[in-house]
Design a protein around this nucleic acid. Structure first.
Length: 223
DNA sequence: CGGCCCTAATTT
DNA sequence: AAATTAGGGCCG
């Protein structure tokens, strides 16, 4: 359900992990998207943050390295967050692979981005499984950092869908890659808009009429 | 405070 | 060289 159809013409190596699936872009050295289902029990797990950032051996030389991020002015921002992987030590460890990481502004990472992650865990605990996809929005002429020329995204998206009282619902967000004021609600948009920005097709397993209806609707304020 | 990170120093 | 420890900054 959560696995998108990747935009055509975009380099992609799909890697299936314990807690998430990633479409890795070997040219950009960052993911195209990261997708996973977050269940009620997974979102209820808690424990010590454990693990360290490391290159992904599964993609060989195309992996970003820690040196690329060092002193770059950007943090190593998780796409599938550690906080959503605490139900398994292996899943937690795998979340630190640099194929799951993007150069992200420090204050965005620790600010509204983290806030949204936390809010989604709450929703999963309250309503059951939710399906989460997130990743970068890369503009032409993007900046890079490090020897491996790791792409610095201009924006980040996060789209989610879930079933509530028998109805499918979804929400979408886009954040600029810098300190974002306000709350994550201020960055709400439509799934259609994110599809337009990225070229990916989200939640394509939904019945066509449902997909068409809810992905066009801006659901701001309606959780 | 706990959570997202960072760097430097120290140990092995 | 690699792992661990200690300390710092920012956010909500």
């Amino acid at each position: 359900m959560e696995i998108p159809v990747t935009a055509t013409g975009v380099p992609s190596a799909v890697l299936v992990r314990t807690g998430y699936t990633v479409s890795y872009n070997p040219d950009w050295r960052i993911p195209n998207w990261v997708a996973y289902e977050l269940t009620r029990s997974e979102a209820s797990a808690h424990g010590k943050r454990e693990g360290g950032f490391e290159p992904d051996p599964e993609v060989g030389r195309s992996s970003a390295e820690n040196n690329d991020y060092k002193g770059s002015g950007y943090s190593r921002g998780h796409m599938a967050p550690v906080g959503d992987m605490k139900w398994s030590r292996k899943a937690m460890r795998e979340s630190f692979l640099l194929t799951n990481i993007c150069p992200q502004d420090f204050d965005l990472n620790a600010g509204v981005w983290e806030d949204l992650e936390s809010a989604l865990r709450s929703r999963a605990r309250k309503y059951g499984s939710i399906y989460i996809v997130c990743g970068p929005v890369v503009d032409s002429g993007y900046k890079t950092i490090g020897r491996k020329r790791v792409c610095v995204p201009g924006r980040f998206f996060k789209v989610v869908c879930w079933q509530e009282r028998g109805d499918w619902r979804c929400k979408a967000f886009v954040f600029p890659n810098r300190k974002c004021g306000g709350t994550f609600h201020d960055y709400s948009t439509t799934v259609d808009q994110v599809e337009s920005l990225t070229g990916h097709d989200f939640f394509h397993l939904l019945p066509d009429d449902v997909e068409h209806r809810i992905e066009a609707a801006d659901t701001q304020g309606r959780w």
